[in-house]
Design a binder for these strands. Structure first.
Lengths: 336, 336
DNA sequence: TGTATTTGCGTAAACGTCTACATCAGCCAT
DNA sequence: ATGGCTGATGTAGACGTTTACGCAAATACA
């Protein structure tokens, strides 16, 4: 294990000079600097981060907490965060929390232990109010979700407006019996999308039917979406359109409809949410509301580094969304 | 920021005593220990990891390098690794390398910088021979893949035997025109599966047809699988079965067959590989060769901690696989 | 009672880096 | 020649832990 003093000896200078050569801080003769860098190369020297972090009191590491990293929705977000971290000379390490509070807390405690400079949380329940304690002491950014009324920085789209956009589209296709396939969790996005759904119906003069709001599993699983959609199709007066709050749930709904002998979109329209890449796998391809995932990641990381650097940054960042119309939706037709 | 000496002052003891109370090392009076722990709680003290790591010369962190973390194949592997790391009192941080060599090297350099104790690599090209330099100096384990002829610890299934199992099954269904949908990468598993395919054909007295071996993209993308399968179906004498080396490729093949007006499995049999969870999304459900993903993760991590602790561990770990027969395969029928 | 052992705790020196300060050589202006 | 300046480098202390060592008190044993 070669240390800075090995390099100093090899180059015939003091450790202070080596440090200056490497960090380009303070005065140093360019010739000396070259000599030191040559020694660094010859000895394959890398600074010991533990020592550096201890001395500098910062780690060059940010943590990304995700409940389920294989959710394709996260792919671009993670890339956006990583790219931004690299730009700031930091590393982005991902912690798989599996939605387990102990694991989440264990990961966040790394902040208190000076093993990371800040953290970005992907997905936050509205009942995770204990987060305030961490946000008060450490740089923290919530991505995609947020806790209304709490002073924690967050980045997301306007889920209620996005929901209204989906509804405006479906209503424009002359659908009136529109169901909402939600999820059994307390994410703010879930609540906002439901609110947008209800508002839009009422604004269109349609009385919301309680039976038309059904719930998939908290993690939007395909099978739960399929089961919930089956319940909708079994109603005496089934909907002609299903507005699903995730693409995976929508895939489940498509399969449920197909197994019930319905053609999508001829007999029933189904829309998703997020526009994840695996959408290409299912036929018909999903009409869905696209989130700017890469930008969500970049914006979250940028906000986090602002917090770490004690620079001003708004508490709330709202990014644009857009509707992507594909094959799974169409104008309402009379069921044969 | 409270330090060990704050705790010492609060508890009325020396910092050495606080350290002993926390690490449970050396002699300490239980009463004193309690007193210290009370102070620790009162002051919300957490040890500074940088300082501890510097002193102990170990970090309690292992790195997982993945080219594409949303690949569902990795989900259980990652969980297996994380669980094992927790058991060893370590944290498992994931680095998204996006198959980029610079990012991979940057991540591995964290080992040299004393910011991690070891690393597990998910997916390794057979041309990544530069890895030897790292493996010689640091604890490294390759999971799923490996570099034949290199002294780097690895954990995987026997891909050639697994490939033969798939072929035995398809041959047993009386298929003789069996195609192999491979991937355009240099993973050892890819080579082994191809070898098993060829061997099985020859052992069955069937002459391999070069046109029956086609390639999807290096990362097994759905669309590349679909395109490659279309090429197979366009042959003057198309195969009656397609053995795909990943589930995603198989999904592409299924869609290609369906779009060509073929029924799966009545007109053509299609098999996948890995048995990823998203399989439930596609109909018909895939017959596939299941890898013991969680066990792969656990075994990799266990081997890594053995290396870190300088305990003996075999260089090669081979885990069991098994064939899962579902709906996408069936006995060969004469095409109409 | 005296000696040997055990127990509990404090002192101080490391771990490898950064950086304020000191030092020193060279230069210029007086 | 003297003093002041600048630039380049070295010295040494700090960051927060851990832990070898030493010492005093308590205990054990004769």
């Amino acid at each position: 294990m070669t240390t800075i003093s090995d390099v100093a000896t090899h180059a015939g200078v003091s450790i202070a000079t080596v440090s200056r050569a490497l960090s380009n801080y303070g005065r140093i003769n360019p010739t000396t600097r070259e000599k030191v860098l040559t020694s660094v190369g010859a000895l394959h020297y890398s600074p010991n981060r533990s020592a550096r972090n201890l001395r500098r009191n910062q780690t060059g590491v940010i943590l990304i907490l995700t409940p389920n990293m294989t959710n394709p929705y996260y792919a671009s977000i993670l890339t956006g965060i990583s790219d931004t971290a690299t730009l700031h000379g930091s590393a982005a390490f991902i912690c798989n929390t599996l939605d387990d509070q102990d694991r989440t807390i264990a990961a966040l405690d790394r902040l208190r232990q000076h093993q990371a400079d800040g953290a970005i949380l992907l997905s936050t329940d509205t009942d995770s109010t204990w987060l305030d304690d961490y946000a008060a002491d450490f740089p923290l950014v919530l991505c995609s979700e947020f806790l209304p009324g709490h002073d924690i920085a967050h980045v997301s789209i306007d889920n209620r407006a996005a929901s209204c956009d989906v509804m405006r589209y479906l209503l424009g296709l002359e659908h009136t019996r529109i169901a909402h396939l939600s999820a059994d969790n307390t994410y703010q996005s879930t609540l906002d999308r439901l609110a947008g759904y209800r508002e839009s119906l009422i604004a269109a003069g349609i009385t919301p039917v309680p039976e038309y709001v059904v719930y998939g599993s908290p993690d939007y699983s395909f099978s739960s979406g399929k089961a919930a959609a089956q319940a909708l199709l079994d109603l005496s007066e089934p909907p002609t359109a299903i507005f699903c709050i995730s693409d995976t749930l929508a895939m489940g709904a498509v399969v449920a409809a197909q197994e019930a002998g319905l053609r999508v979109p001829d007999d029933i329209s189904i829309t998703g949410f997020d526009d994840v890449a695996v959408n290409e796998v299912i036929r018909p391809q999903l009409t869905t509301l696209a989130q700017p995932c890469y930008a969500l990641g970049v914006t979250s990381a940028t906000a986090l580094f602002a917090l770490i650097g004690h620079e001003p940054t708004p508490l709330e960042h709202v990014l644009d969304h857009h509707l992507v119309i594909r094959q799974s939706s169409g104008i309402k037709t009379v069921r044969v």
